[in-house]
Write a protein that binds this DNA or RNA. Structure first.
Lengths: 350, 350
DNA sequence: CTGAAAGCGCTTACAG
DNA sequence: CTGAAAGCGCTTACAG
């Protein structure tokens, strides 16, 4: 590995060195240990000493070096996002949420995609975390659903928060997305429109959300005294292509469904495609509901009725939980899935 | 700021300490300085000494602590991605490309969105880089087009690579995306289909790519002895909504264009929407070409003819250039924009 | 080609 | 409530 160029090597000789803890200590007339206490919020500093130090910090623009601090703490100020979700919109929303939550904290976000199927994930993740001595990680589906990864975090002493549709861990390690409620909302919406022959396209069985979204949908049917016809449940893979394939099969049935709830927007876009091929109008002949409310939902035609998941908000909460700054006063409803009605759903055809 | 829990505090007492440079030095019977030389690829180590040390490193699984190394080097092993592009697909493709290029290098990727308009961007970026002592940063449009940011990097001694549609800097700091060639391809394609009344919807004027894509389009028209009617150039903002608005205006003209080249896929999706509203069939009455070939291009209907930009590949190149590992043997064509023909373009209507 | 000393900028025990 | 010493795991001059 090529050693990096020394900082300032190309600078213009000004060499206005950043102040260190020693400078602050000298200017404030205290030991660096006391400055350290102020930085770390120790209560064992007299009020006037603290104020004097804080004044010097403000004047000099001193900011502690995270690397030096990390070396002494045996732990960095980096937070990792470990994910295997291939949807770019999900990834970016989650990142933005995490950054929202981390703003002003001095922590930085390091992104780390992985492949859950890979036999090397575990050692690979371990090496990443140990090398960088990560403060903590946020795990998103489906890696978040792997208990071995959570155990690994405990073992190596790395904080973690798992984002998942159901509680898989202690509350301090969990942010629940409650996908089941989203499925319920979808069912209620379609039933209120008069639909009785409903179908579901699931994500891959390796994602917990696939089962939760289906479960919630069935809950909603049960409320109306209905049950899902097993022939009306198709397995997809959360991809556009799998949505097309599943919808083709459903629409070829003898008494085809009048409404399809797809496990995500990508597959719902595939359903619209299959409906078009079959000469069916949406929502005239077929209602379609998606899940996520990513950008694609409002770019396709007809615009998709879908379940919005507040991914960015979830990310913010995850970061706050990880850093122990959770703000419990916030409205907990903000983090629940909610129905967004657009053009792809309508009354059941006569 | 709450100090982090000490590493291993929750571990199960095993405390199998990671080996340090001292362990390696002791086991190899050399000084730690010599181990350091091996780590840093110094040529001043005798071959047999080097081999002995490398053997110990392999046995013990030693990996140098990036934090300690960074502290001594006065520079971290972090690479920053600084961006203000709001398109999630762009961001994720770029990140994936950077990670491709960084794999196995020991560097990690820290993401840092910013807002170019914000009067505080410069100090904010400076604080971020100085605090973390970033090894280097990759800048993407439109922040990459701001010379003040490049100057800032020079001033604080941070490596940088700018990704932009045209050379704005020395070659060692530039990855060119040559958007102009993409515009040219779009024009040639439409002209070959017989179109003569062509229109363009630009991105915001603050993005260099807006002008380059237009410029290339005009180059293509010029090849055929044509010129763009000024009334056929509309200004958009690279957003879906702006694409709808611009297309509505173009389609309301007396002699409306038979083909529209939109500056990106998002706006092209808006054009399809406006065409539908106007009762025009695509490509029967109107051909549409986009730019980017993001996922949306193949999810909408009709699927979009567009210009593919190899963003992930560009990202890989940017990372390699930043780390001084550039592989010049690679086919340079891979990084150029290229035409992808789908369903939204067809022969000019009679 | 190799090493002993000093230092990077912080924090942790340990005293007082 | 405050501080002097030692240490986190590396690298940089400086010798030899």
């Amino acid at each position: 590995m090529k050693p990096p160029r020394t900082q300032g090597a190309s600078g213009e000789g000004l060499e206005r060195r950043r102040p260190t803890i020693n400078d602050v200590a000298r200017l404030a007339g205290v030991s660096k240990k006391t400055v350290s206490r102020v930085i770390n919020g120790s209560p064992f500093v007299r009020a006037d000493t603290r104020e004097r130090i804080e004044a010097v910090i403000a004047e000099t623009g001193y900011a502690p070096d995270p690397q030096a601090r990390g070396l002494a703490f045996r732990r960095s100020f980096l937070i990792g996002l470990i994910y295997d979700n291939p949807n770019p919109q999900y990834v970016v929303n989650m990142q933005n949420g995490l950054l929202d939550g981390m703003r002003g904290s001095g922590f930085e976000l390091v992104v780390h995609p992985c492949e859950r199927g890979d036999p090397n994930v575990l050692p690979e993740i371990r090496a990443f975390i140990e090398r960088q001595k990560l403060f903590g990680v946020v795990l998103t589906p489906s890696v978040s659903e792997d208990d071995r990864i959570a155990e690994l975090m405990d073992e190596i002493g790395c904080e973690y928060v798992r984002v998942a549709s159901v509680p898989l861990d202690e509350p301090e390690h969990m942010i629940e997305t409650k996908d089941r409620l989203g499925g319920l909302e979808a069912a209620r919406h379609l039933i209120a429109l008069g639909h009785r022959r409903l179908a579901f396209i699931s994500g891959p069985p390796t994602f917990r959300s696939s089962h939760e979204r289906l479960g919630g949908f069935e809950d909603g049917l049960a409320e109306a005294g209905l049950a899902l016809d097993p022939r009306h449940v198709a397995e997809g893979a959360y991809t556009f292509e799998s949505g097309i394939a599943a919808a083709r099969a459903l629409l070829a049935l003898d008494r085809r469904p009048t409404a399809i709830f797809a496990g995500n927007d990508e597959m719902a876009a595939g359903v619209l495609q299959a409906a078009r091929e079959a000469g069916l109008s949406v929502p005239g002949d077929l209602s379609v509901v998606g899940f996520d409310d990513f950008q694609i939902a409002s770019r396709i035609w007809p615009a998709l009725t879908t379940i919005r998941t507040p991914t960015r908000e979830i990310g913010r909460l995850a970061a706050e939980k990880l850093m122990g700054r959770e703000d419990e006063r916030r409205d907990p409803k903000q983090r629940l899935p909610s129905l967004v009605v657009r053009e792809s759903s309508g009354p059941v055809p006569k």
